[in-house]
Write a protein that binds this DNA or RNA. Structure first.
Lengths: 189, 189
DNA sequence: GATGTGATTGCATCTTGTGCAATCACCGTA
DNA sequence: TACGGTGATTGCACAAGATGCAATCACATC
């Protein structure tokens, strides 16, 4: 007989998502989450720095993968294309098979300002990480930052569309579309 | 004899900035802030939704002004130029004369993740507001969002440089530079 | 002089988040 | 088998942030 039921973090994550989905983030207390997961508050805060963080377990892995993919990618590609290409690869690997889950999670985040802020923070960290890789690879930090920011803009747009109900295209395709749109939008008249 | 010393919100803002600057955001309690401002905690939370918000008094005005300036601006300009132009005008009006104050505030924000998240949230709200104006004016919401996002990217870059110690160019100039860099960066090879 | 308004306050209470010490199944080793 | 170390979990006390509600009282209005 094991001392504890296994995989506490995952139990907390699913309990939290279910409750947030059902009653909203603010009207859900950590006490409720840990009760449903059969754990204690102290354990919750052992695994997650704060209440919001329970929704962002994938983001560090996402960042690692994208950085890795850029570094492994084609050196000859223009930087912006290289980054978006990496995003496409990672999207296929990490997102396409969990579309409904991601959409549910995204809806929860979209419904709450605190969670949106956290999401923006994660995106900003990812932007910096991408900029750092580009800086190391090509040169000038400003160009690196702008390239990373532009890629993230395309990613945001693609992701929004991907989670829209009724949308059937893959995130991969939507990323390519978004990059094209971005280019024609920014292009000097 | 007036019942209270005047301008409670402003007293809270300056007290907070001074303390955050001196000891950092996390090591400053609301109790300390209100003591320095000769008010009570309850009054603090009457004026500001939370502890962070005390640093973001300008952002609603900023958003109003930028939106107004876009609406009043030259209709013939390409959208991205129109937005950046509006930002330049507002920068001249609201920022150039408070450079040191803005830099101090920015340093405080840059030193704390919670404040950075709030800043990102304000930026996102501004992006949406700009996108809404463009959407109303030109058409397609996706293009509007990408244009707004691109302009904000340039703004972020310009602002970073503007608050760098030793930088002497105006935010206006830096915005134009940033837009040029962005265009050459995103441009297809 | 009576009355209503609104900024401020006090108090009770809830929630989030942290530090610290204790528990005890599990694992490797003698 | 016995023994000791490890590490995930827990309990408890407590600081700080945040909210609801009722009370105060200078000021403006009539």
């Amino acid at each position: 007989m094991p001392r504890w039921k296994p995989d506490a973090p995952e139990r907390l994550r699913t309990a939290a998502l279910e409750l947030f989905d059902a009653q909203g983030f603010e009207r859900t207390t950590v006490a409720e989450i840990v009760q449903r997961a059969e754990l204690t508050q102290r354990t919750f805060f052992n695994h997650f720095a704060d209440k919001r963080e329970v929704l962002f377990g994938l983001s560090s892995e996402l960042q690692r993968e994208i950085v890795r993919e850029i570094e492994a990618g084609d050196d000859a590609l223009p930087p912006l294309d290289a980054v978006v290409r990496a995003m496409e690869v990672v999207a296929d690997k990490m997102f396409e098979n969990r579309r409904v889950l991601m959409a549910r999670r995204y809806a929860v985040i979209a419904a709450n300002p605190e969670l949106q802020e956290r999401e923006l923070g994660k995106n900003a960290a990812l932007t910096e990480a991408i900029a750092a890789v580009l800086h190391a690879r090509c040169g000038d930090p400003e160009t690196a930052f702008l390239t990373a920011g532009a890629a993230m803009l395309a990613q945001q747009m693609a992701f929004r569309n991907w989670t829209r109900p009724g949308e059937t295209r893959t995130l991969h395709e939507l990323l390519q579309d978004a990059l094209r749109s971005l280019r024609t939008t920014v292009e000097p008249a």
